[in-house]
Design a binder for these strands. Structure first.
Length: 471
RNA sequence: GGCGACGUACCCAAGUGGUUAAGGGGGGGGUCUGCAAAACCCCUAUUCAGCGGUUCGAAUCCGCUCGUCGCCUCCA
């Protein structure tokens, strides 16, 4: 079976065929940096990361672009409130965002273009749209996309533009336009707002325009994959398609992938309603980043996921199970003949894992394959049924699969000050069968956040307490 | 109102026409261990929201009912 995705455009499960064999261009709508992103946002970035990692693992040369929206109504509003230039605010939250990405082990995108650094590309796009008759100016210097000029409008979201409900908010839009459904490409300058002097006038870019201009700047007029949350399907991505294809005359994106929402307490996590949890709060509660990562990754990306304390605890236990096995395999020493069944077991696991992810990134069966192997290996370990080199081979497979998942390795390996001396002393005490001394040392280590376990292959330690100073 | 997704054990979650309904978490019992921890073994859904229908056969297909959620607003 080959790699397939459920394309939002058309809704069918389609074999993935990149435009250029072996190379993939992928764009993800990134954050608007006026506040720390919440874990609902990170669910969608984590999904994009899983996609990117899996494509890379399969051998594709991936170019991943994620924009940073650093000019926007809310940014302007909050910067004014604080009395600082928008750049101060966006620099601060961009830094927070990048740190959060790293902590969650999200691969750094190859390019993270800022909107404010791509004004010329956006202006060029608007000029083309004006020339081609798809855009018009209004009295205040704004420029709108004329939906009536683009018959394919509504194809992605499967909506009939004619039937669009005209709500009060649409009508109350502050910018005058010919048709309420038209969307702003360029917003005319207003007093007190940042603006750029350009060939199309003084103003600032509309949100949809940024993504079209920056994705095409780095990936070309047509590229393979575009991801985002389902809430972006309409109007954001619909608008991106309209303005991009109207400007270039070429198909914009091959496959659109949208991640379902993260819910909390039965409703969508959203800044607007205040129903949010942020990574920093989760870590402060003692949960490790990789547990959060697995919790957000473990449901299929198109299924909505309810975030709860229980889901976090389950993920934390699962993640511990993986790293405990890796530690056991790493420390295992048994000079014996290789286990003849092991190669087939490992190969079957890899096959199940791959077949699952090939099927529209079905993570649950992929995890099932991995955990079946975990149980099997633990059993063999307990029975001393594999050799030292078998253990090395098995650990290598798990680490290889974990290049896609990035949850198995512990977050931090650094021992606290003085812990090594205590560990050494305890090993000596155990060698002398001094149980009282050894237990006392174990208590001291526990107080330092180091839990010690005794195995046939010797003493093994791990850091407890979840967040342990990673990044 | 329009469009869309979904309802599987105590919790999360696979499975979408045919072997014993994956996997994770939790709970109960046991084994191993100086103790602890980890790990392993056994148990925890004769049943897939409800009701009809199609079929030799349905959690899977069709219809209806009930329930949940999302989008239609510059939200990931």
């Amino acid at each position: 079976m080959s790699l397939s995705f459920r394309n939002t455009l058309g809704g069918a499960l389609e074999p993935f065929v990149p435009r250029e064999p072996g190379r993939v261009g992928m764009y993800s709508c990134g954050p608007t940096v006026y506040a720390p992103a919440h874990i609902g946002n990170f669910r969608s970035f984590l999904f994009a990361d899983l996609l990117r990692r899996y494509l890379a693992w399969k051998g594709y040369a991936v170019t991943w672009v994620m924009n940073i929206t650093d000019v926007d109504d809310k940014i302007i509003r909050d910067a004014q409130r604080e009395g600082v230039p928008i750049g101060d605010l966006t620099a601060r939250y961009t830094e927070t965002f990048l740190k959060d990405l790293r902590t969650l082990r999200i691969t750094m995108p190859d390019v993270m273009p800022r909107a404010t650094e791509h004004i010329p590309e956006m202006v060029a796009l608007v000029e083309t749209l004006l020339e081609r008759g798809h855009a018009y100016r209004t009295e205040d210097g704004s420029i709108f996309f004329r939906i009536a000029s683009w018959p394919a409008y509504g194809r992605l979201a499967r909506i009939d533009p004619e039937a669009q409900r005209v709500g009060e908010r649409v009508e109350s839009d502050e910018y005058a336009k010919d048709d309420v459904r038209d969307f702003a490409l360029w917003k005319g300058a207003r007093p007190g707002e940042p603006s750029w002097s350009t060939a199309i006038g003084e103003g600032r870019p509309g949100w949809h325009l940024e993504c079209s201009a920056m994705s095409m700047r780095y990936l070309g007029p047509s590229f393979d994959l575009h991801t985002g949350g389902v809430d972006l399907v309409f109007p954001h991505h619909e608008d991106e398609i309209a303005q991009s294809e109207a400007a270039t005359g070429l198909p914009f994106v091959g496959t659109w992938l949208h991640c379902a929402h993260l819910q909390m307490g039965g409703e969508k996590m959203a800044k607007r309603t205040g129903n949010v949890a942020r990574p920093a709060e989760i870590y402060a509660g003692g949960t490790s980043p990789r547990a959060l990562r697995l919790a957000l990754l473990s449901a299929h990306y198109r299924a909505s996921l309810d975030f709860t304390e229980a889901s976090l605890a389950a993920a934390a236990s699962a993640v511990e199970r993986l790293s405990t096995l890796l530690a056991a395999l790493d420390g295992y020493r048994e000079e014996r003949a290789p286990d003849p069944e092991l190669p087939a077991l490992l190969a079957a696991t890899r096959e199940r894992f791959t077949a699952a992810l090939d099927d529209d990134l079905s993570i649950a069966p992929a995890l099932a394959a991995l955990f079946d192997l975990v149980r099997d290996l633990n059993r063999r370990l307990a029975e001393r049924a594999i050799s030292t080199s078998d253990a090395v081979t098995a650990a290598a497979l798990i680490r290889d699969l974990d290049r896609v998942l990035a949850v198995a390795e512990p977050d931090g390996e650094a021992l606290p000050e003085g812990a090594q001396a205590l560990l050494d002393a305890r090993a000596a005490a155990r060698a002398a069968r001094d149980w009282t001394g050894s237990d006392a040392l174990r208590d001291q280590l526990a107080a330092l956040g180091v839990s010690v376990e005794d195995t046939r292959d010797g003493q093994r330690w791990r850091l407890t307490g979840g967040n342990d100073g990673t990044i």
